[in-house]
Every structure is written in C-alpha cells, then in structure tokens.
Computed example of a mutant assay.
Amino acid sequence: MSPSPRRVSRLKLLALFGVFVLPMAMAWGMVEWRLGIPEARTAHGRLDPAVPPLAAWPVQGVRKAGDEDWLLAFDCPAACASEADRWWRLHRALGREAHRLSRLRIGGSGAPLPGAAAAAWRELPPWRSPGRLWVVDPEGRAVLEYPAGVPADQVLADIERLLELNPASPLVRREAITEESADGH
C-alpha cells in the first residue's frame, strides 16, 4: 500500500521546515547553553594588554602610513638592529597585505629601516619594557602584546589572522592596487 499524495505532501513540507528551522534551533541552543563553542583563544600574544591608547603614549614622532593601517610598535633598546630587521622581514612576509601594516620603532639609534618610522619616549611609562612588541589597531588601541624575544612566526600568524578577520574597506583596497600599479609591481 503506497502513501497517499496528501501524506507525501505533508512529509515534504515537514522536511522543508526541518531544513530551515533545525539549523536555527541548533545555533540558538549552542549560543544559549554554550555547547560546541570553543573557549580557547588562538592568539600567541597577550590579548587586550593593559596599555593606554596610542594617542596617550608618551612618545614623540608617531606616524602611520595610512589611517586604516594596523601598527607594529616595538620598544627598541639602544642596540636593536637585529630586532628591527626581524620585524622588517615579518612585514615583507605579509605579501599583498603588507600595505595594511605600519612599523614604529620606539627608541634605539640610527635611521629606521625602509617603511618604518622612528620615535622616542619622552618619558618611560610603567608598562614599558625593552624589546616589547605591540600590535595596535587602526583606532590606536593595543590589541596584542608580546614579550621580548617572541618568535616572529607567532607574531606573523596573529597579524595574518587579524587582517583576515578585519578586511580592508573597498576604497583602501582600490588605493593600494592603484599604488602598486603606479610603482610598477
């Protein structure tokens, strides 16, 4: 005995409701009861460090290449040529996304490497320590902090993740493409 056409239609309608309603109910349950949501953080650096916004840092000479840029700021003791070179190489490793990051060397001596800016502490803040590295968002908030000697590959992975999760606006992307074609790259 075959099912009636009316019964088949009802089963199809229930299956259609299930396809659309069941995922929403599962998502609501995951959020409400925190089921299946990972609690671990994936950043290698310290998230949300206890440092003031960049505008309040006692630093003179802070500048970024663009308003939408992220900033890699590092505290440079007197001799830090190898550290500056390491962060320059990390910047180059970003490839097509390199235009979204500016570098700032705070302290140290000599001219900064290409693409970096140099600044000096007016006074030493209590949260500062030599060799420390900060990743600052476009609004000037430090979002990640690293101790001296952190492996560059960990910092690179975090920056790539940040840039992936915070895509550039279409206007900024268009300007970067225009600059690259004008430079002959």
Rank of each mutant, 00 (worst) to 15 (best):
D183R: 14
L171N: 03
R41P: 00
F74S: 03
P130T: 01
L16A: 14
D69P: 03
I37S: 08
R10V: 10
G66K: 13
P77F: 01
L54P: 08
W28L: 15
A98K: 12
R128F: 09
R122T: 14
P77C: 06
G36K: 10
G110P: 06
C80W: 12
V136G: 02
V8L: 15
R103E: 02
Q60E: 13
G108V: 06
A50W: 02
P5R: 13
D137V: 06
P138S: 01
D85R: 14
H44V: 03
M1E: 07
P167Q: 09
W28H: 10
S102W: 02
A15M: 06
A40M: 03
A182T: 03
R105L: 04
V31L: 15
E97F: 00
E139L: 08
G108F: 07
S109C: 01
S169N: 10
V8T: 12
I106F: 04
R174E: 11
L11N: 05
V8M: 14
H99P: 02
E32Y: 11
M30I: 00
R174P: 00
L104F: 05
A120F: 00
L133V: 15
F17L: 13
I159M: 15
P151V: 04
A119L: 05
L165A: 13
M24F: 09
L163Q: 01
A116N: 02
E32W: 14
D69H: 14
T42H: 10
E179N: 09
A117H: 13
R105V: 10
E123K: 10
R122V: 11
A84N: 06
P151I: 00
P114K: 05
P23R: 09
L104V: 07
S9W: 09
G61M: 06
G131Y: 03
A56I: 04
D85W: 11
R46F: 13
D137C: 07
D85Y: 10
V172K: 00
R89S: 11
S82R: 15
C76I: 00
L144Q: 04
P130L: 05
R6E: 13
P49I: 12
E145I: 00
V21M: 12
D69L: 03
L104D: 01
L163G: 02
G61W: 06
L72K: 09
P126T: 07
R89E: 12
D48A: 15
P53G: 14
A27I: 12
S181C: 01
P49G: 10
